[in-house]
């Protein structure tokens, strides 16, 4: 079951996703323990594998630390859905093989605790709780290729 954790916030930044006090390591499992800590100290406890984070504009703004993506991946978050993403974070997601879903109005269409099913290929989110289907614009092909290959480095090696 994929549950939505909705934060009606814009500009959720990398310091909130993974505070700099933990940047003395790049171990994903350790980073995961502090995922979203300065935004919601309970997040890691609440989040079950596959759950989804839903936010407003400019998610991931701030530092270039890919640790933010690793913390989210390490916490086994299934997806992040945001109205928009900060540029470096967005790029880091793709490079790590993690799909950032851009969906304007997401925090109004998805309620905290809603059960979701995401079809990346079709570009749809089925909101099972509200029984409605939401469309999003799928990533461009070159980004999908990178994600399919499991991230940029695997993609480069393949080429």
């Amino acid at each position: 079951m994929t549950k939505a954790h909705v934060y009606k916030r814009d500009h959720v930044n990398t310091d909130e996703i993974i505070p700099a006090r933990y940047l003395n390591t790049d171990d994903a499992a350790e980073l995961a323990r502090h995922c979203m800590e300065d935004l919601d100290a309970e997040f890691v406890k609440k989040c079950k594998p596959g759950d989804v984070i839903v936010c407003g504009d400019d998610f991931g703004c701030g530092s270039s630390r890919e640790h933010a993506v690793w913390a989210i991946q390490g916490a086994q978050v299934g997806a992040v859905i945001a109205h928009s993403f900060a540029r470096i974070f967005y790029r880091n997601c793709i490079n790590c093989g993690f799909y950032p879903i851009e969906l304007p109005g997401a925090v109004d269409q998805i309620r905290d605790g809603d059960e979701l099913e995401i079809d990346y290929k079709a570009g749809t989110i089925l909101n099972k709780t509200q029984n409605k289907t939401i469309r999003f614009t799928p990533l461009p092909d070159f980004a999908l290729d990178i994600i399919r290959d499991g991230g940029l480095l695997k993609h480069i090696k393949k080429k």
């Binding site: 701030g62 270039s64 630390r65 790029r91 880091n92 940029l152």
Partner: peptide, 26 residues
């Protein structure tokens, strides 16, 4: 540069931007 404030160097008429670790590795 593997740092978001790499944009600093633009003061010299260069194109300069921050990237994450995977891009850095690439």
């Amino acid at each position: 540069g593997g740092d978001s404030h790499t944009c600093t160097y633009g003061a010299f008429g260069a194109f300069s931007t921050g990237i994450g670790s995977t891009d850095l590795a690439a």
